[in-house]
Amino acid sequence: MKRALSTLALAAALALTHTVAQAEGCTKGAAVGGVTGHVAGDHAVAGAAAGCAIGHHEAKKKDKAASAAATASQPAGK
């Protein structure tokens, strides 16, 4: 339990050190990854780091897709 709390504290500290644009997806991913790593064994910190990276990557993909959809829906000329 003590290790899980320290992992969550580490994830929160990492999330606060990034700007909002960089941290998008990281907080949720770190929390999920930390819990998953803790359940799997003494891998909570590694799980939090991997979850942060994956969450950030997925958020960037979602933003890129939304941007492409917005560009495609605009008229093709004036």
Rank of each mutant, 00 (worst) to 15 (best):
H38F: 15
A13T: 09
G47L: 14
A13M: 08
A53T: 03
R3C: 04
H56E: 14
E58C: 14
T71L: 15
A49F: 06
G34D: 08
A12I: 07
G77I: 06
G51I: 14
T71E: 15
A72R: 12
A53Y: 08
V35I: 14
H38P: 06
Q22G: 09
G77T: 13
K62C: 04
A70T: 12
G47Q: 11
G29T: 01
A30S: 07
Q22M: 01
G29L: 03
V45L: 05
A59W: 11
G41W: 07
A49G: 04
V20L: 03
K62T: 12
K62E: 07
L8V: 10
D42G: 15
M1Y: 03
S6A: 12
K28Q: 11
C52Y: 01
L14I: 13
A15Q: 09
A76R: 15
T36E: 06
G77C: 01
T71N: 06
M1S: 10
C52S: 07
A21L: 15
H38E: 10
H57Y: 15
T27L: 11
A30L: 04
A12R: 14
G29A: 02
R3K: 13
V39K: 06
A11H: 02
G29I: 04
A66H: 02
T7H: 00
A76L: 13
G33T: 02
